[in-house]
């Protein structure tokens, strides 16, 4: 994690030769009507800061301790909400992928596990794919049948006025052992067809919000076109083949992307009190 304004030289790194290997872990557990954090272990570029709880929800902010990911880094965050727990994770700043000392790719793997009657909200700031960077990011999410999830991911392809780096992602969501959503994206130099009128066209920011809630089994959301203006961006809301809703958005820049997603999220939360809780 790194502030978007961070200077280019990597901070807090010993040598340039090898990338950083880091696994940060957070575990939330329900205790006496509140959520406690028995595990809160930062590592490498990830430091955790506890924020004030909101209701029964424990809140954690990921603070960047050094510039990452750079080429060659192997980064991993594991977050678990045990039975009945409610955990909200955000980040202090955008994640800036930069070219490392080598052209080698970096990996950034996020593993989220949500147990029965637990809720996890993963709402970090965007990933910025800077020119020359090469990142493979995965989200692997395991949900119990009664678990609830809110996940936001935003990608900004290139800083202002520069071409994007290469970013390849895979998002896999399993619910009760079955795959609910499996989605890959491959953008930037070397990715076939990414800037064509079928994939991103001229858009350089893309994002989505995924809501999983067993309530959607009874009350699935109707598909909805949220915005469709070439200047401001485009977004649709659609039910998945399961108790989940996905908001997909494209926009000319990160500000308008966030605006669209925020508006869409408040719309979608209307139909699901529990997702908003």
């Amino acid at each position: 994690m790194s502030p978007t304004t961070a200077p280019a030289p990597p901070i807090g790194r010993n040598t340039a030769a090898m990338g950083v290997r880091a696994t940060a872990r957070v575990t939330a557990a329900a205790r006496a009507g509140a959520t406690v954090l028995p595990v809160l272990d930062g590592d490498g570029p990830f430091e955790f800061r506890r924020l004030r709880s909101r209701g029964t929800e424990a809140r954690v902010c990921v603070v960047g301790a050094m510039s990452a990911p750079l080429g060659g880094d192997r980064l991993r965050i594991e977050a678990t909400a045990r039975q009945g727990a409610s955990l909200h994770i955000t980040s202090a700043a955008a994640t800036l992928a930069l070219r490392g000392p080598t052209a080698a790719h970096a990996t950034y793997d996020v593993h989220l596990t949500v147990a029965e009657h637990a809720e996890l909200r993963w709402l970090p700031k965007p990933l910025i794919s800077a020119a020359g960077s090469n990142l493979r990011q995965t989200w692997t999410i395991d949900l119990a049948p009664t678990a609830r999830l809110v996940l936001r991911e935003e990608q900004v392809l290139g800083r202002m006025g520069e071409p994007p780096g290469h970013v390849a992602t895979r998002l896999t969501v399993r619910r009760g052992g079955h795959v609910l959503l499996d989605q890959e994206a491959d953008y930037g130099p070397g990715a076939p067809g990414w800037d064509t009128p079928a994939v991103l066209g001229h858009h350089r920011t893309t994002g989505q919000i995924l809501l999983v809630d067993p309530d959607f089994d009874e009350n699935p959301r109707e598909p909805q076109v949220l915005t469709e203006s070439p200047e401001d961006g485009q977004a649709v809301l659609t039910p998945l083949a399961g108790p989940a809703t996905l908001i997909t958005a494209l926009a000319p820049d990160g500000l308008r992307l966030r605006h669209i997603l925020n508006a869409a999220y408040s719309t979608s939360a209307d139909g699901s009190n529990r997702a908003r809780k």
Partner: peptide, 21 residues
């Protein structure tokens, strides 16, 4: 089966939902 590709295309997705209406 999880090994199968899952490549996505946001514009195809968004415009398909727009077109349906």
């Amino acid at each position: 089966i999880d090994v199968l590709p899952a490549a996505s295309a946001p514009l195809l997705d968004i415009s398909a939902q727009q077109h349906a209406t």
